[in-house]
Amino acid sequence: MLEVQNATKRFGGLVAVNQASLKAAIGSITGLIGPNGAGKTTLFTLISGFESLTEGRVLFQGQDISHDETHIRARRGIARTFQIVQPFAGLSVIENIAVGAYLHHAKRSDAMARAEEVGRRVGLGPELDKSASSLTVAGRKRLELARALATEPKLLLLDEVLAGLNPSEIRDIIPVIRAIRDEGVSILMIEHVMQAVMNLCEQVYVLAHGRIIAEGPPAEVCDDATVIEAYLGTGAAERLKREKVHA
């Protein structure tokens, strides 16, 4: 479905993404994890076309889309959510979602119907006519998801949609994400909530300092010494192992 080949992004002297390659298979949920500032969001901006690649390529359904503009990629079927939510603050919830729905429904009545359906699906049913700016954090995250979903994507890029939610809210939304996958939408998700990653993802990539340092099924990746060190600092893996032995 999606293949990123040796993607590199430089901001002046800073190399935010460095020779990163990854694949997201059709109909699967792929995780992208890594410490803060690793370059995960930047990789998303490269895939969705908000920033241009310094080096490398992005392939989608076998085609090179590296030079397509953002809206073209959206039309091809790539939708993203924003880590820092970006609602259309002056519009109602349903109008927000309808902007996404209009991508494949030119008529207002169709787009609104579609928006309502998607809104209910992610649990925004009671809020549809409220102003988007009146939503809680959890509500805004759902709105991000709903808008992206309303574009009827083939590939959904989720950037920390669970961050800032409490455990019960997370429990509510995990089945929603799984259901989206079950309908055939491929998902690539950035997530810090490990419980969710373990729960949802078939394959996980770990990004640190812009490089992919590990990949594999979530359980394996989490035991990987380099991954633990990337998160907790050098020597951390050793320490953990020793502690385990002593315990």
Binding site: S48, A79, Q86, F88, V99, R147, A150
Partner: peptide
């Protein structure tokens, strides 16, 4: 209107 409210978000939705 989406462009007025948030251009980046509009782009992401295929506008």
């Amino acid at each position: 209107v989406a462009v007025r409210e948030n251009e980046a978000a509009a782009k992401a939705l295929g506008v």
